[in-house]
């Protein structure tokens, strides 16, 4: 083999290497570009635009002049607007706290019970999850029918068992409307945290629980000292998801109450307020894209910041399992 031909082959080698590298780049671009573009155009671009829109005055669909933080001032400090904002925010906080206690508390109890694989384990699991797969619209309307003051099954049942005084117009009273909706939400979603918790418990090695049992711990101590700390990652996720869900709460009050958070704005939420501000309604008047965008940015910043803080705090108590 002469040197010259080796040199030629070296050139061929370089060329084929370059060609293969280019082919690889092309192939990667083919795989990555469509999804990246999709996400850029339909998620990142609108999210970024929202920030931009919030600093302009809007006349319907037409962008007016730059007004700086004017829209933010309007939604935060104008007396009427600020009352709406505070009222809706307060309701969202109530929803979050209630769901944390009622929905996730119940889910934890159910998960701890199901983790012991009682007879009918599969059945219970499927039944608890059944409402989760249904549309909020179906659930909302269904319970709206059930809670109808006169014809609804709930009150018919209460009258049947001689509890007439309890047969209230549940969704019509400011005192009971929000609570009823929270319970409906719990009924709808409780299966989700239950099964996430259950999966987390199943992931804890059996040896650990058996070791604790040999150490003499009773079921309550095992749940408190072993299972609870080791299922921390699942708790973190559920808390964050509940938080995001609560502050995006829209469908249930929209369907069971109204766009105005009836009765008397007792079920108003940030989601409804945002929708009214952006697209117009009886109380908010015509659509206002500027104020709507400002509200959206504020809600986003709030949810984002809090999610990060909550995640940071909760993950600090998580323990790595080897």
């Amino acid at each position: 083999m002469s040197l010259a031909s080796d040199h030629d082959i070296d050139l061929i080698y370089q060329k084929s290497l370059r060609k293969r590298k280019n082919m690889r780049r092309l192939w990667l671009a083919f795989l990555l570009l469509p999804p990246i573009l999709m996400l850029l155009i339909f998620v990142f671009l609108p999210m970024a635009s929202a920030v931009l829109y919030s600093v302009y005055d809007w006349k319907g669909l037409v962008r007016g002049e730059f007004i700086g933080l004017g829209n933010y001032y309007d939604v935060l400090f104008k007396p009427r607007e600020s009352w709406f904002l505070f009222n809706a925010f307060k309701n969202n906080v109530v929803v979050f706290i209630s769901l944390m206690i009622v929905q996730n508390g119940l889910a934890l109890v159910l998960a701890l019970l199901l983790a012991r694989k009682p007879a009918g384990y599969r059945f219970y699991q499927v039944v608890i999850f059944l409402p989760v797969i249904l549309s909020t619209v179906i659930i909302g309307f269904q319970w709206k029918l059930f809670l109808n003051p006169i014809f609804g099954l709930v009150n018919k049942f209460l009258r049947m068992v001689d509890l007439d005084m309890w047969a209230l117009p549940w969704l019509g009273l400011p005192e009971t409307a929000l609570g009823s909706m929270i319970l409906v939400n719990t009924w709808h979603w409780v299966g989700f945290p239950t099964l996430v918790f259950l999966a987390a418990i199943h992931r804890i090695p059996k040896d650990l629980i058996e070791a604790a049992r040999l150490d003499g711990a009773n079921e309550w101590r095992i749940a408190r000292d072993i299972i609870w700390p080791l299922m921390a990652p699942a708790v973190t996720i559920i808390v964050v998801l509940t938080f995001i869900g609560s502050f995006n709460w829209f469908e249930i009050p929209f369907i069971m109450g109204s766009l105005e958070g009836s009765p008397a704005y007792s079920t108003d939420t940030l989601g409804l307020l945002f929708y009214r501000t952006a697209f117009g309604s009886v109380s908010a008047g015509g659509s206002n894209f500027g104020a709507g965008s400002a509200l959206a940015v504020l809600i986003f910043i709030f949810i984002f910041t809090f999610s990060i803080i909550v995640t940071k705090y909760l993950t600090s108590r998580e323990i790595e399992m080897g």
């Binding site: 083999m1 080796d6 082959i9 061929i12 080698y13 084929s16 290497l17 293969r20």
Partner: peptide
């Protein structure tokens, strides 16, 4: 005797 290092 033949170079193969440039081949896939």
């Amino acid at each position: 005797g033949e170079r193969i290092d440039h081949l896939p």
